[in-house]
Amino acid sequence: MIAEKIAEHVNMAQSAKNWLTDRGCRVMQVSFFSRRPLIEITSPSVSLVTQASRISESFNGGTRSVWVANVEGCRVIWR
């Protein structure tokens, strides 16, 4: 069961990476968690920007915006 879930997440991440690169996004990092993969990108496409939600990230007293969208079952973020 665990190996099947890992394989499913790897396939989800690969599909999302392909979708993102086809639209000109640069993938910086892919992280795997128990629920769904997380992909960090730079320069999002217009189609991502229109479906994204803004969240705030705080660290060492500073705050910055982080944008989150879903692609192929994966979370995609950019700052």
Rank of each mutant, 00 (worst) to 15 (best):
W78D: 01
G62A: 11
R36Y: 11
S43G: 05
T63P: 02
V68E: 05
L48R: 02
W67N: 03
R75S: 09
V27W: 01
M12A: 15
I55A: 11
V68H: 03
K17T: 03
F33M: 09
N60Q: 11
V71P: 00
Q29E: 12
A7P: 00
V71Q: 00
S43P: 03
V27E: 02
E72I: 03
V46W: 11
R64L: 11
P37A: 12
E8P: 00
G61W: 02
A13L: 11
I41P: 01
Q51S: 12
K17S: 05
R23S: 06
R36P: 00
W67M: 10
N18M: 09
F59A: 02
I55L: 07
L20H: 02
S47V: 10
R79Y: 09
F33I: 12
S65P: 02
S31A: 15
R79F: 11
V66G: 00
T63Q: 14
W78H: 04
C74Y: 08
S15Y: 06
S47E: 13
T21A: 04
N70Y: 10
A13K: 03
T21S: 06
W19N: 08
S53I: 11
A13N: 04
F33V: 08
M1Q: 06
V30D: 03
V49K: 08
F59N: 00
I55W: 06
H9M: 12
R26Y: 12
I39P: 00
P44C: 05
Q29H: 15
S53T: 14
R54D: 12
Q14A: 13
F59K: 00
S47D: 15
F59H: 05
R26D: 07
W19H: 09
G62M: 07
W78I: 03
T50V: 12
L38V: 07
S53D: 14
S58I: 08
W67S: 03
S43Y: 12
F32S: 04
V10G: 13
E57Y: 03
T63H: 15
R75D: 08
